[in-house]
């Protein structure tokens, strides 16, 4: 589904964020990427989101090279992805409902679908009673659940979660991971980066370990080893 072919990313000061990374992610996989800060995890995800371009090599989504997509076509590709970030990245001047409705509007869904599906996904992440709250009125865990609801509402092919639990306490961390597992069980590919050893060990799924921009280990049922 996603294939990295000798991808390197070199920033202006000659430091390589990614150094010849090759990697394949199959449909319906749950892949965790671990590594110290600066190991290149986030850069890797940014490549998939087409936020960054590789200095050399290519990133394929199914049969398209995503960095050869025209800028005005990019948003169509991004609608196939659902992204979750450590800093939530909600639209601050929109309510929880509107944040999710916005993603649906972008996908060209009708008003009827929006008024039916948004409450449904918010119930799914247990936020049915906070639908009309603005992000600044929600706790960290609640914000992240809104972000997840937004990521899944358009039934994307892949969920990309960049340290989604980085700002959360253990209870919220556990809940977020449970939601991600549920999404995976429903048939969505999940790519997760994290620093949390407990999370990785409890998942028992494929683990890719990165160091200094290279993949140093790729275990099908890995543990957090650094």
């Amino acid at each position: 589904m996603i294939r990295f072919d000798k991808v390197s990313k070199i920033y202006s000061d000659d430091s390589a964020a990614l150094d010849g990374v090759s990697l394949t992610i199959k449909p319906r996989e749950f892949v965790s990427i671990v590594g110290h800060s600066g190991a290149g995890k986030t850069t890797l995800l940014k490549m998939i989101l087409a936020e960054e371009r590789p200095t050399s090599g290519s990133v394929m989504f199914e049969s398209t090279d995503i960095h050869k997509l025209k800028r005005h076509k990019l948003h169509q590709y991004r609608r196939k992805l659902g992204a979750i970030f450590q800093d939530f990245r909600l639209l601050t001047n929109k309510t929880a409902f509107e944040n999710i409705a916005f993603a649906m509007e972008m996908a060209g869904r009708s008003d009827d679908e929006i008024s039916a599906d948004v409450p449904y996904v918010l119930e799914m992440v247990d936020l049915g009673n906070k639908m009309w709250n603005f992000p600044h009125e929600l706790s960290g865990g609640e914000k992240q659940r809104v972000a997840i609801a937004r990521a899944i509402v358009n039934q994307p092919d892949i969920i990309i979660a960049d340290e989604p639990t980085g700002n959360l306490d253990p209870v919220n961390t556990f809940e977020i991971i449970q939601i991600l597992k549920k999404i995976h069980d429903l048939g969505t590919t999940v790519i997760l980066t994290t620093h949390n050893k407990g999370v990785i060990d409890s998942l028992g799924k494929r683990v890719i370990t990165m160091e200094k921009g290279r993949i140093i280990r790729d275990d099908p049922t890995g543990k957090y080893v650094l």
Binding site: L49, E51, H72, L74, H75, Q76, R78, R79, L81, A83, R89, L90, L91, F102, A103, M106, A107, R150, N154
Partner: peptide, 10 residues
Amino acid sequence: SVMRLVGASN
């Protein structure tokens, strides 16, 4: 930038 990532067209 968030809108872009959610798949909003220009």
